[in-house]
Computed example of a mutant assay.
Amino acid sequence: MVKKSATRPADIYLRFLQLAEAIRGMPSLPPLEPLEERILELVARASQEQERLSVRDMMAKQELGSPATIHGRLKSMREKGWIMLSETEDARRKQIDLTQAALIHFDKLSKCLLKAAKG
């Protein structure tokens, strides 16, 4: 008989994934494609670090694909309600910001993480 040990870090992470999946099933924002999720993470991290991230900055990230691909994903994410573009002092540059709905989504994920850690 295998004795169940204390909760392993992997168990916490797997419980978090299960809780996060439940949130994705709730009606809120439309789901993102994998590249859009990667972009959202970059925008969220920049926001957390209080850095400005412009469309031009994002399009320069070659690891995300061509500028046309990135532009298309940013447009899709705006239409889905995840991001918004804000004016800057340079009218030619638009800053990428999270919408209030995206911030609420991150709040829900944070609660899932805390719940998973508590067991």
Rank of each mutant, 00 (worst) to 15 (best):
S47L: 02
P30C: 07
G72D: 00
M77F: 01
S28V: 05
R78P: 01
D11F: 04
R15T: 02
M59W: 01
I23M: 05
S5F: 09
P67L: 03
L109S: 08
E49L: 12
K4N: 13
A91W: 07
G81C: 08
K118G: 14
A10Q: 14
M26R: 13
L74S: 01
M1N: 05
A60K: 08
P67I: 03
A6I: 06
E36M: 00
L113S: 14
S54D: 06
L53W: 06
G81F: 00
R52Y: 11
I23A: 05
K80A: 14
K118L: 15
T99L: 07
T7S: 04
M84C: 07
A117P: 08
L14M: 12
F106Y: 13
D97W: 10
K61S: 05
K75N: 09
L17W: 07
C112W: 04
P30T: 02
A102H: 03
P67N: 06
R56T: 15
T69V: 05
L98M: 15
G81Y: 06
L98N: 08
S54R: 11
L32W: 00
V43D: 05
S66E: 11
D11Y: 02
E89P: 07
T69K: 12
Q100P: 02
S110G: 12
S47D: 03
F16A: 02
A44L: 07
E21P: 02
S28I: 03
I12R: 03
H105S: 12
L19T: 01
D90E: 07
M59K: 10
K94H: 14
L35A: 04
E33T: 09
K111I: 11
R73G: 04
R52M: 14
G119I: 09
I104L: 12
M26N: 08
S47I: 02
E79Q: 14
S66A: 06
L113H: 12
L42V: 06
R73C: 02
I96C: 13
S54Y: 06
R52P: 08
S76L: 06
L14P: 01
S86G: 11
K4D: 13
E37C: 07
L109A: 03
G72V: 00
L98A: 15
A6L: 11
R73N: 05
E49I: 01
W82M: 01
I23E: 07
R24A: 10
C112V: 09
H71M: 10
R73D: 01
A10G: 10
L42C: 10
E21N: 10
D107F: 11
L114Q: 15
E79R: 14
L113T: 08
Q50W: 05
T99S: 08
L64W: 07
S28W: 08
G25L: 09
S47N: 08
L74Q: 00
S66M: 04
L35R: 05
K108Y: 09
R24Q: 13
R78N: 02
T69C: 00
K61A: 09
E63G: 10
S86L: 15
K94G: 13
L85N: 13
L53G: 01
L64F: 01
K108H: 12
K75P: 06
I104K: 11
V43L: 09
G25Y: 04
L103G: 08
L35W: 00
H105M: 11
R15V: 05
A46H: 09
K4W: 09
L40Y: 02
L35F: 00
A10K: 13
L35D: 04
R52L: 13
C112Q: 04
P9F: 01
P34H: 01
K115P: 06
F106P: 00
E36A: 07
Q100T: 14
A60C: 09
